[in-house]
Simulated assay, not measured.
Amino acid sequence: MTDTTRARPDSSPSTSHPVERRPRRRWARGVDRPQYLRAEDIDRLGIMMVALMSEVSALRDRLDTHEAVAELGSPVTREAIEAYELTPERRERREVERQALLKRVLRVITEDREAALESAPGDAA
């Protein structure tokens, strides 16, 4: 059995008054859930997210190039990075990683879309 009372901070221990503790809700539900974005902002947010994903992808490619130049034993300079020739194997690995990034980031959208398509009645195309 847990103690549901506690002493008030402004009173001494000998004259403490029990205070009933009520459990707090940890998250908003239903109509209490806050709305941060208007409907027209959702498209803008999607555009920003795709722009950030492309920046992350470019940074990953750049980092992979740094690693490749270092593996060749060359000093990692701007000139060496710009002159690096991408191998077909590395190109394929980058594409696999890029697709995995897209799948992870867009998972919520694609799952919702697939669920909506599956539940659509009469769409036997």
Rank of each mutant, 00 (worst) to 15 (best):
M1C: 06
T2C: 06
T2M: 13
D3P: 08
D3R: 14
D3M: 12
T4N: 15
T4M: 15
T5W: 15
T5D: 13
R8F: 05
P9W: 12
S11M: 14
P13N: 10
P13V: 03
P13D: 07
P13Y: 12
S14G: 01
T15N: 15
S16E: 12
S16L: 07
P18F: 08
P18V: 01
V19T: 09
E20H: 10
E20D: 03
R21V: 13
R21L: 15
R22A: 07
R22N: 09
R22T: 04
P23Y: 09
R24C: 05
R25G: 05
R25N: 04
W27Q: 09
R29F: 08
G30E: 09
G30A: 12
G30C: 03
V31Y: 13
D32S: 12
D32C: 01
R33I: 08
P34L: 10
P34R: 11
L37A: 06
L37V: 01
R38W: 09
A39N: 04
D41E: 15
I42H: 04
I42S: 01
D43Y: 05
D43L: 05
D43K: 09
G46W: 05
G46H: 03
I47M: 07
I47T: 08
M49H: 03
M49K: 07
M53N: 03
V56N: 05
S57A: 09
L59F: 04
L59W: 09
R60W: 09
R60G: 00
R62M: 09
R62E: 06
R62A: 08
L63C: 01
D64V: 01
H66K: 11
H66I: 06
E67S: 00
A68Y: 11
V69F: 09
G73I: 02
G73D: 05
S74A: 11
V76N: 04
V76W: 04
T77W: 13
T77C: 05
R78W: 06
R78F: 07
E79K: 11
A80K: 03
I81E: 07
I81M: 13
A83V: 00
E85S: 09
E85H: 10
E85K: 03
L86A: 02
T87V: 00
T87Y: 07
R90E: 11
E92P: 00
R94A: 11
E95Y: 06
V96H: 13
V96Q: 14
R98E: 02
R98Y: 11
A100V: 02
A100C: 01
L102Y: 08
K103C: 00
V105G: 00
L106S: 01
R107T: 00
I109W: 13
I109M: 09
E111F: 04
E114Q: 10
A115P: 00
A115W: 02
L117H: 13
E118I: 02
E118S: 06
A120M: 14
A120G: 00
P121G: 04
G122V: 05
G122M: 10
G122H: 11
D123K: 14
A124K: 07
A125K: 13
